[in-house]
């Protein structure tokens, strides 16, 4: 159950929102601020999917330690996503392969998709926001 107050735009419409995470967790602010949009969207009771592709797969890497670069470590937030009813997490197989990663390297349970499967999933969405 979410600890964030349920929000409502008054329309009662539920759309399929996909958040496409393409960038490494640190180095730019996109992953951190993107995550804030994901949580708010879930609080609006929308149908949320998160996709991790390209360097975005590094966002889910185990053992992230940001002490040396003196920035906030928001890695724990990914583990808390199911508390916001965000359970559809997908990673791109080719992006994992290119970086020598497997599901065992990730901090959360994900569904690994081929490029074709990802394209189909994307085609089903109403809104795709890329960070």
């Amino acid at each position: 159950m979410s600890d964030m107050d349920e929000m409502d735009d008054g329309s009662g419409i539920v759309k399929k929102f996909m958040f496409l995470n393409r960038k490494a967790p640190h180095g730019t602010v996109y992953a951190l601020e993107g995550l804030e949009v994901v949580l708010i969207t879930a609080a609006f009771d929308q149908d949320v999917s998160m996709v991790f592709t390209d360097d975005g797969v590094y966002q889910l890497l185990k053992g992230i330690d940001t002490k040396g670069i003196e920035v906030k470590d928001f890695s724990k937030t990914y583990r808390a996503l199911d508390g916001y009813d965000i359970e559809k997490l997908y990673v791109d197989q080719a992006s994992m392969d290119a970086r020598g990663l497997t599901e065992d390297d990730l901090i959360v349970d994900v569904t690994v998709l081929s490029v074709d499967e990802m394209a189909n999933l994307m085609a089903e969405q109403d809104v795709v926001i890329s960070f």
């Binding site: 759309k15 929102f17 996109y30 804030e36 949009v37 969207t41 609006f44 929308q46 809104v127 926001i129």
Partner: peptide, 21 residues
């Protein structure tokens, strides 16, 4: 205002178009 205003655009409008990297 808050991020809810962005989410509302996605819910209520026909298209949400992003400009950025």
């Amino acid at each position: 205002s808050g991020l809810g205003q962005l989410v509302e655009m996605g819910i209520q409008y026909d298209r949400l178009v992003t400009f950025g990297d």
